[in-house]
Amino acid sequence: MTEFTLPIAPRRRARPLAMRSVYLIAPAALFLLFFFVLPLADNAMRSFVDEATGAFTLARYAALLTDPFYLRIMGETVLLSAGVTVISLIIGYPVAYFLVRKAGRWSALVIFLLIAPLLTSIIMRTFGWQVLFARKGLVNNLLVNQLGLLEQPLRLTNSVEITIAALVHVLVPLMVLSITSVLQGIDRRLEESAQILGANRLRTFWEVTLPLSLDGIGTGAILVFMIANGSFVTLVLLGGGLQTLPLMIYQQFNTTRDFGMASAMSMILLVIAIACLWLQLRIVRRRGA
């Protein structure tokens, strides 16, 4: 309270107001320590303890890291996320470029169209893909009835391609928004200088714009990879025969009920997520410097 009785306004602004006590952080920090960190620590413990004997064991991790069955699952998880990330980048970059450089007075509409799908439920979008590719869906209707290319409707819903398309559909707006925020900060004079010095548009893009937007690409890629890695609703409903870690956790919980194994798999997902978060922080810090 003493700060308020000072007759002279402090010159240095480092002095905090009394309202701004450190204890204000306590409720949020304690809540997350108790209900976020402790559950994850508990989960880590469970992954190291044998359920039958209660003894310490590394058997689950040994299985995850050596058994070809589990190695394939982890490979598919990472490969699927990486694939979705690369496709999102290739599709998303031109859209971000258009939004920043070409959209002009249409940019509000473009942003609305980008964000509106983000607010629809994951169930709705997955259902939408099912409707498009179902036996009596739009695509089969076109192929069989309208164009007459096929006699029988195709079984399309259970395919890897549609699962990937559905994941890209969910995640590509995040990529576009990440790249947009960096492109907006690029000094256009740099590009103009390159063109004045004789570079054509392609070379200007390749040697000036693209390198300057690498931070946005990095941020977007990590974000998309991170979320793709933990997604399972799309995989549960669209299938495609892919076996990923989140899907295995879901199945272990539902049917196999091997909770220790599910805990170990969660820990692997968690380690990947922490690695992504660490990379993300490094990019943010470099940008700040």
């Binding site: 949020a28 920090a29 997350l32 209900f35 976020f36 402790l38 559950p39 994850l40 508990d42 989960n43 469970r46 991170m226 890695n229 933990g230 399972f232 989140p246 956790i249 879901y250 919980f253 909770f259 599910a262 805990s263 969660s266 997902l269 968690l270 997520a273 992504c276 978060l277 993300q280």
Partner: peptide, 20 residues
């Protein structure tokens, strides 16, 4: 730290929270 739950896979948070 306070923002980190956003970066963790939700399925892991759900699974771990249930047992805890």
């Amino acid at each position: 730290f306070l923002l980190s739950p956003l970066s963790m896979p939700m399925i892991v948070i759900g699974f771990a929270s249930l047992f805890f």
